[in-house]
Design a protein around this nucleic acid. Structure first.
Length: 310
RNA sequence: GGUAGCAUAGCCAAGUGGUAAGGCAUGGGUCUGCAAAACCCUGAUCCCCGGUUCAAAUCCGGGUGCUACCU
């Protein structure tokens, strides 16, 4: 059994800081569960740990791929599992830190990604075949698997496309949609979620967005654009990036996009919080104030010590 | 002081006699290959008082507040 610690929580709640401290104190290495920090060159906007932090504790799945590369949960899962066992075999504690719920989920549970891989072109094809009509797509899905069709809202084109893709790719039914959630085998997990008052979190978000913009988000976006990336690239769909690209293209500056970025980040944080509510085993640690919350950290350590004993 | 206009949910806002569109925010939620994505759900009896009418956010009178212009 590999002991696997998770430090989750919404964006801007302080994950980086606390995970780093834990890694130092426990002799751990950090496995990022962040769908944006995984990209190279996207440092400022994704609020990546800085060079000093990256040097202090070993990080995995940060700066892993090119922004132009495709990536998916399935890729994440297999890479993360590999790194985790390597860390474990070195006698270190793997600490998964990040806010991408689905990535965390892929490690926590035995999600398997069988069947066909996601193929953009294939999905595009299906979409064209349905004449870009949500209703027609829904009908096609219903014919293939009525149970799956009932679970996916007809407005959710993206999900319906993937479902059709899988079913036509050979799967008889999307049994996966049943909520069979087996804990991942081979891991002994402890899931800690950092939490804050909503108001305090939103204040932190606003502050952080201002800081990110001051630190040169616009230049970062411009250099990514110079590398040939456009708003069509997945990496550029990240919050902060997409808004600034739009602003630049409209002849405005990053500052002009500030309010929009803040709003989108708040929405994102809310969804993250809601996502985490699904885990009954979740240990919530409430953080307060801007300074490092020693009291909260101490109770975190206590939880961890107890878990490590068993 | 005068004249005109406006007053609808946290904000923007439609509706000008038949019982309150929509957008944003907020909150809640879904989630098996783009997840910082995609999608779903969520609120008011219309400034106050009186009147006309079977029926008023909608018409009339008065009050209050805001805005513009005038003196």
């Amino acid at each position: 059994m590999i002991k696997l610690l998770f430090v989750a929580g919404p964006t801007a709640c302080g994950k980086t800081e606390y995970a780093l401290r834990l890694a130092k104190d426990l002799g751990g290495e950090i496995v990022s569960a962040d769908s944006m920090q995984i990209y190279k060159y996207m440092n400022i906007g994704s609020a990546k740990p800085d060079a000093e932090e990256l040097a202090a504790v070993r990080h995995w799945l940060v700066d892993e791929i090119e922004p132009s590369e495709g990536f998916s949960v399935a890729d994440y899962q297999s890479l993360a599992r590999r790194y985790i066992s390597e860390i474990n075999s070195r006698g270190k504690l793997p600490i998964v830190s990040g806010g991408t719920g689905l990535y965390i989920n892929s490690l926590l549970y035995d999600m398997d990604f069988p069947g066909c891989k996601g193929d953009d072109e294939r999905r595009q094809e299906i979409w064209e075949e349905c004449e870009r009509d949500g209703e027609k797509l829904a009908e096609r899905l219903r014919r293939l698997d009525s149970a799956a069709a009932e679970k996916i809202h007809p407005n959710n084109i993206k999900r319906m496309l993937r479902a059709v893709e899988r079913l036509e790719g050979g799967e008889d039914s999307l049994a996966a949609f049943a909520d069979v959630k087996k804990p991942a085998e081979g891991y002994d997990t402890l899931l800690i979620a950092l939490a804050r008052n909503r108001e305090e979190l939103y204040d932190r978000i606003n502050l952080r967005v201002d800081k990110i913009i001051d630190s040169g988000l616009e230049n970062e976006v411009r250099s990514l654009m110079a590398m040939g990336l456009t708003s069509a690239d997945v990496a550029m769909k990240g919050i902060g990036y997409k808004e600034v690209i739009d602003a630049i293209e409209a002849g405005r500056s990053a500052e002009d996009a500030s309010e929009l970025i803040k709003k989108n980040t708040r929405h994102y944080a809310r969804r993250q919080i809601i996502w985490l509510r699904r885990y009954p085993q979740l240990k919530k640690i409430k953080l307060e104030g801007d300074a490092f919350d020693e009291a909260a950290y101490a109770s975190m350590r206590e939880l961890i010590e107890e878990w490590l004993q068993n």
